[in-house]
């Protein structure tokens, strides 16, 4: 995957006809600044919500991990409890009990540990047994959040909590018939730098209510196309769209409802269903499979 992204980015920056002879071109550190009379230069942002869950291992992978964990447990030498715990302390007994539970979980009910440690399971002293205490404490602990969020069940594509294992990308919908779903994008103003234009357009279309971090100042891919003859405007024959990658760190997209009427956070496969086929061909390699 990384390699495909790399080649795309390399191709985007290597194209000799990206900057034509008439293009006024200046390099500031890494930023490019371009203006072209015949081609409209457009900057777009591929805004990404990074995965926040580890990928679920497939059954074979999980079986392998379990097997290795059992092996590791079987050949490891036991913890010298007299070093780490005061003899007879609550910590020691708790550890012994938990360790016994772990052994049972790994090797089955019939397994009896070689070492017998002072485990007060019966509660001889009249009070509660340690096992009861532990069970009570386990009830008090906050259970872990489920891996599948409510937004997944409700198929809420606007939620940032959905599909925690996947990369999500922000698509916005413009109020028009064709090419309505796209990444936030817009044309350059005057002598603006490309990466600044991308960020400005993102703020204009999605509102200021987002904390965004842009990955570098170089475009990660580009898409050049010609306008159909009937829809040429301002003397532009076509457009070149430069895509920049960004991450959302906080906040949410809040379009004003005028230029942009809707938005969605989508995985790569879902993006394909929303956008036009020609647009998909141009952008598909910039999106992460994971």
């Amino acid at each position: 995957m990384l390699l495909e992204l790399f080649h795309l980015s390399q191709r985007c920056l290597a194209r000799p006809n990206v900057y034509s002879q008439r293009t006024a071109l200046r390099f500031r550190t890494l930023a490019t600044e371009a203006s072209n009379k015949t081609t409209r230069i457009v900057a777009a942002t591929i805004l990404n919500r990074a995965p926040f869950l580890t990928p679920t291992p497939d059954p074979f992978e999980q079986a392998y991990y379990d097997y290795q964990a059992r092996l590791a447990r079987a050949i490891s030498s036991p913890l010298p409890t007299d070093v780490y715990f005061k003899p007879g302390s609550l910590l020691e007994r708790r550890f012994a009990l938990e360790e016994r539970q772990r052994e049972k979980a790994a090797f089955g009910e019939d397994f009896t540990p070689i070492i017998s440690l002072p485990v007060d399971e019966d509660g001889k002293g009249g009070g509660k047994s340690l096992a009861d205490q532990l069970a009570e404490e386990a009830g008090l602990e906050e259970p872990p959040q489920p891996r599948i969020h409510r937004a997944d069940k409700e198929k809420d594509v606007k939620s940032l909590d959905r599909a925690g294992e996947r990369n999500l990308y922000l698509l916005v919908k413009k109020d028009r018939k064709a090419n309505s779903w796209q990444f936030p994008q817009g044309g350059l103003e005057n002598d603006e730098a490309l990466h600044k234009a991308a960020l400005r357009e993102l703020k204009e279309e999605c509102g200021p209510n987002m904390d965004v971090w842009m990955v570098g100042r170089q475009p990660i891919g580009h898409y050049a196309y010609e306008y159909p003859t009937e829809s040429q405007r301002d003397g532009h024959l076509g457009a070149k769209v430069y895509f920049f990658k960004g991450h959302i760190l906080a906040g949410q997209c809040r379009p004003d409802g005028k230029e942009v009427v809707d938005f969605a956070w989508l995985t790569k496969e879902e993006v394909q269903q929303y956008v036009e086929p020609h647009y998909w061909t141009a952008i598909k390699d910039m999106l992460s499979d994971s």
């Binding site: 990384l2 992204l5 790399f6 980015s9 990074a50 995965p51 580890t54 990928p55 291992p57 992978e61 392998y64 991990y65 290795q68 964990a69 092996l71 590791a72 050949i75 990369n167 990955v215 570098g216 170089q218 990660i220 990658k245 991450h247 992460s288 994971s290």
Partner: peptide, 23 residues
């Protein structure tokens, strides 16, 4: 012995950090 679990930060590196650093 091989790995016993899917390391969380390694997954974070693979899915997010590596791509960004490359760019």
């Amino acid at each position: 012995l091989g790995p016993t679990h899917n390391s969380r930060l390694r997954a974070h590196y693979d899915t997010t950090v590596a791509e960004n650093l490359m760019y």
